[in-house]
Write a protein that binds this DNA or RNA. Structure first.
Length: 619
RNA sequence: GGUCUCGUAGUUCAAUGGAUAGAAUAGAAGUUUCCUAAACUUUAGAUGCAAGUUCGAUUCUUGCCGAGACCA
């Protein structure tokens, strides 16, 4: 039985015998650094029963625990805080076990099946910084769930159809002159993205010209006297700007020559037109090839990939099912809705009047497909928090349709990545491209390493690997150390700064350990004559690691692992600075410190492994 | 108009309702005859505002102010 369970049990018994409290749910916390002790029990809630001062109550309990638990060497009381001190022998025993067993993590998953969907890119543009956060969160959560004993299916749903891809296709047809990734040397996803941008630019020019012309001005005059205009007048928005954005879709769908061509192309795609399909296959192929390169560098992979071209019609049967059961209802125009007002939400459309699906219909169908394919206990979507509402609705609909898997849906909702100059906007060219960013951090790693000049004797390929490990590590860690749910700031300058709370700092700590182990002939645990403070701190830190791995799974949050590993690395550097390891006077102290160092190194490697980050042996 | 999320040192991030709110950076001052100084040590600096619940609130509730997202 682990020490916390023992303490909990004994404390409950003490509360019962002293104050007749029989149903106390108690917990211990780690003692605050400013006080002596290892674990703290807060007695304030029990003063009503004890009818004594906080200090006296805490002392009475402390006395009993000290008597009954061998590992407790003493206690101190500050106000209502009972600080229990564990003996050095206890911590040494913990270390000995840890050295013998390696890193162990409690199995909390019991082989439950989890399908995690992440990445989910569109095939009209290359990946950007936001996708990187998504992907590495996904990868990391997969690793974490596996480590906790879950059966994980890594899943991607590629959005490879729709109006946006037709835009790239049309632009390539009109202005591409047969350009290919081979002919241009441009990576496939970037090439397709280039034509997407080209389309948008051409459209903007066309639209602006029309707005300035006779018909555009006439529509603007009409708009100025409309009801929607009143709202903008209240907000003090300039009316011609407001009109420009209000009318854009109408223009695209009914007036724009290239807009209508794109719509027609989508129609042909849906009708299975051979020529359109061939172009679509060709250009998507370029994009997939490009994505593969990016995924590989990021360390991202999947067990199962769905393509939206196969799934976009799913869900229609379920609309029918919902209508029959009365979960959905039809409006006068023939559109199908669900009423979620009793859940505090609105009415939500699930099928348009013309019989076509909306986004959520596909998602209903795809959820069902997943369940048919995997019979999972839980299915997780790693998707940005701008879709919180969407997933709330999706889960409610599945529940109302009485789907057995509805409760297993979890939206791992992560925050947007902001730049110092504000939000990333593709239109304003402030999007941080994934490939460029990776290139940049790796080349910074190279530069830094060369400046420090400690890599003498390493081969060219070893060096290339090292730069990759350091650069990619820095990038991933920078994104993963922040609570996944929270919106975060990406500062390019800071991300290539390798001091402080960064991956290279932790990787450096690891190489220090690796270097020690190379110099030592053999590592085996021996009990030292005394335990120093910085040694004990290290043991305590290391001891909390496996709980953090459990917590990271329970809270869907890799940053908890990042934080523990960072604290561990910091503690190690302090220890390393204060005590000589290889040069320790007593042989048993040397063996102890070496085996402790080794265990710390293993923990760092293990934790970074869960984050999808490598560690170098030298740097 | 409605719903949701978020406001912590200059900046970027921490803190199951607990003690004197932690780090990192940037600032100031130090540490190399010694296992890798991408390190270590010292120093200064913060909970948007106002109520409420509680023995105790950064954390829970309400209102206001500010930032963002979504739905129609």
């Amino acid at each position: 039985m682990d020490i916390l369970s023992v303490l909990t049990e004994k404390t409950q018994a003490a509360l019962a015998s002293l104050y007749e409290i029989n149903d106390a749910v108690i917990s211990f916390e780690k003692t605050n650094d400013n006080f002596a002790g290892d674990y703290t029990f807060v007695v304030f809630p029990y003063l009503r029963h004890s009818r004594k001062k906080p200090e006296n109550t805490a002392s009475e309990i402390g006395e009993i625990i000290k008597e009954e638990v061998a590992q407790v060497s003493g206690y101190n009381v500050v106000k209502g805080f009972l600080n229990l001190e564990l003996s050095d022998d206890y911590w040494l025993a913990v270390t000995k076990d840890r050295v013998a067993e390696g890193v162990t993590v409690d199995n909390i998953g019991n082989n439950q099946k989890i399908v995690i969907e992440y990445s989910s890119p569109n095939t009209n543009k290359p990946l950007h910084l936001g996708h990187i956060r998504n992907n590495i969160l996904g990868v990391s959560m997969c690793n974490i769930f596996k480590e906790n004993g879950y059966d994980v299916v890594r899943n991607n749903l590629i959005n490879n159809r729709g109006i946006h891809i037709c835009k790239s296709m049309l632009a390539w047809q009109h202005w591409g002159n047969g350009e290919t990734p081979e002919s241009s040397g441009i990576k496939g996803d970037h090439l397709v993205g280039k034509y997407y941008v080209k389309f948008e630019k051409k459209f903007q020019v066309e639209y602006s010209e029309w707005l300035a012309g006779e018909n555009g001005q006439a529509q603007l005059e009409l708009f100025k006297t409309s009801k929607t205009a009143e709202k903008y007048i209240k907000e003090n928005t300039e009316l011609d700007k407001a009109f420009k954005s209000e009318y854009k879709n109408t223009y695209f769908n009914t007036i724009s020559s290239i807009g209508i061509q794109v719509k027609t192309m989508l129609q042909h795609w849906e009708d299975g037109d051979a020529e359109v399909l061939a172009l679509w296959n060709k250009m998507n192929g370029w994009v997939y090839d490009g994505f593969d390169v990016t995924y590989k560098r990021l360390g991202v992979s999947f067990d199962k990939i769905y393509y939206e071209s196969d799934t976009y019609l799913l869900g229609k049967a379920m609309v029918q099912e919902g209508l029959e059961s009365g979960t959905f209802f039809t409006k006068e125009d023939g559109s199908v809705w669900i009423d979620l007002t009793d859940e505090g939400l609105d009415e939500k459309i699930v099928q348009r009047a013309d019989g076509t699906s909306v986004y959520i219909t596909q998602d209903i169908g795809t959820a069902d497909l997943k369940y048919k394919d995997f019979k999972m206990d839980r299915f997780i979507y790693v998707v940005g928090n701008e879709q919180d509402y969407h997933f709330k609705v999706l889960q409610l609909i599945l529940k109302k349709l009485n789907k057995p898997y509805a409760d297993g849906l979890y939206h791992l909702s992560y925050g947007m990545v902001d730049l110092p100059e504000g939000k990333m906007k593709s239109r304003e060219g402030t999007v941080v491209d994934a490939d460029e960013l990776m290139e940049e951090v790796v080349s910074t790693a190279k530069k830094q390493t060369e400046e420090l000049g400690k890599t003498e004797g390493m081969s060219a390929s070893e060096l290339t690997d090292l730069y990759e490990t350091l650069g990619m590590g820095a990038l991933k860690y920078y994104l993963l150390k922040v609570d996944a749910k929270k919106r975060m700031m990406y500062d390019p300058k800071e991300s290539i700064d390798f001091q402080g709370n960064t991956a290279p700092f932790i990787q450096y700590t690891y190489t220090r350990i690796a270097s020690l182990l190379r110099a030592a002939d053999e590592v085996k645990y021996e009990t030292p004559n005394e335990l120093h403070e910085s040694e004990k701190d290290l043991i305590v830190q290391m001891n909390s690691y496996s709980e953090a791995v459990n917590a990271a799974a329970n809270n869907y949050n890799p940053s908890e692992i990042a934080n523990v590993i960072y604290d561990l690395a910091k503690s190690f550097n302090k220890f390393y600075h204060e005590h000589t390891i290889l040069g320790a006077k007593e042989a048993n102290a040397r063996s102890f410190r070496l085996s402790l160092s080794k265990a710390v190194g293993e923990t760092i490697k293990h934790g970074f492994g869960l984050l999808g980050i490598d560690v170098p042996e030298r740097m």
